[in-house]
């Protein structure tokens, strides 16, 4: 009886010890993530320039946001961004991962080469590509030299119909190698005997891919897609460095709009409102991931 009581007491102490170890990280999270996030929600109900006195205006910022044409342009651009990023790098990454996984001696070389752009800082890569896309001394000169005059006159970052896609291209160049490495890691976990069995049964390469590869890497695939969706809502760096959201607001994203409102217009309250909306979108993407997980894909 006494021993049981001691064991119970020790267990209780251990439980408290665990809480004690978790506490510093929890406090840090509370202080630097949870509280600022909550204050953003709080500020969204105020007219505030970030330094002066705050004026409570209720839902006025929200009403303004839903009537703001710039906001809708940014939102639509964000969805375009998502659409491109959940297709192009996923398809390209998967395809290249499937090929690279077949390589033996040169696999490391190709993995490194394709992954390399990902380790370059976005601001630096953005500036480098700005120079490449400069109409006077960038790739346009190469096109002109090749006789492709029309292409040589293209304003990659100055044409409102192209600017967003030009920036997307650069971010894709930077990002797809990361996706490929994720898929490569997943592919290497697939049991090779499954392929052997399929081959014995006479399955084609396409059928192997469709019925073995894809289901086996489904958790990674789902994780990559949901992560891309969440990241796409938050993407900022390449657009800010390369076009600043322009020309006009042709390449404006929600994040760049938030930044402009907060630090050019000094409308912290309104910027907070857009942040809240942005968070809701990300949370919805996260909820989708949880839903998928519940349906049986161990994400």
């Amino acid at each position: 009886m006494q021993t049981a009581s001691i064991v119970k007491k020790e267990k209780k102490e251990k439980k408290w010890l665990v809480y004690f170890y978790v506490l510093p990280a929890f406090l840090m999270h509370l202080l630097f993530i949870a509280l600022p996030a909550l204050t953003t929600f709080y500020y969204s109900f105020f007219d505030w320039n970030g330094i002066g006195a705050k004026t409570f205006i209720g839902l006025q910022n929200y009403r303004e946001m839903f009537g703001d044409s710039d906001f809708y342009v940014a939102l639509v651009n964000n969805f375009k961004w998502i659409l491109v990023f959940i297709t192009v790098p996923v398809f390209l990454g998967l395809l290249m991962a499937a090929w690279v996984s077949k390589l033996k001696k040169t696999q490391m070389f190709f993995r490194t080469v394709y992954f390399l752009p990902y380790i370059i800082a976005a601001s630096m890569a953005g500036r480098i590509w700005c120079t490449y896309l400069n109409p006077y001394f960038g790739i346009n000169n190469v096109f002109k030299a090749l006789g492709w005059t029309s292409l040589g006159k293209t304003l990659w970052l100055g044409n409102k119909n192209i600017a967003l896609y030009s920036v997307m291209f650069v971010d894709l160049w930077h990002f797809w190698g990361f996706v490929m490495v994720m898929f490569l890691g997943a592919l290497q976990q697939v049991d090779p005997t499954l392929y052997e069995s399929a081959r014995v049964e006479g399955a084609s390469k396409g059928q192997e891919f469709r019925y073995i590869t894809v289901p086996s890497i489904m958790p990674t695939l789902t994780f990559v897609i949901i992560t891309i969706i969440m990241w796409s809502f938050l993407t900022f760096d390449y657009v800010w460095v390369m076009t600043g959201g322009g020309p006009g607001n042709a390449s404006e994203l929600i994040s760049t709009l938030v930044y402009r409102m907060a630090y050019s217009h000094y409308r912290t309250g309104y910027a907070s409102t857009i942040c809240v909306f942005q968070t809701v979108l990300s949370v919805l993407a996260y909820a989708a991931m949880q839903l998928v997980k519940k349906r049986g894909w161990d994400v």
């Binding site: 700005c130 400069n134 109409p135 100055g158 076009t243």
Partner: peptide, 16 residues
């Protein structure tokens, strides 16, 4: 410029 002001950075314009 050549109706391309948004495609050129301040630094590039100066460099030219």
């Amino acid at each position: 410029g050549n109706q391309d002001t948004f495609a050129v950075t301040l630094e590039d314009g100066r460099a030219m």
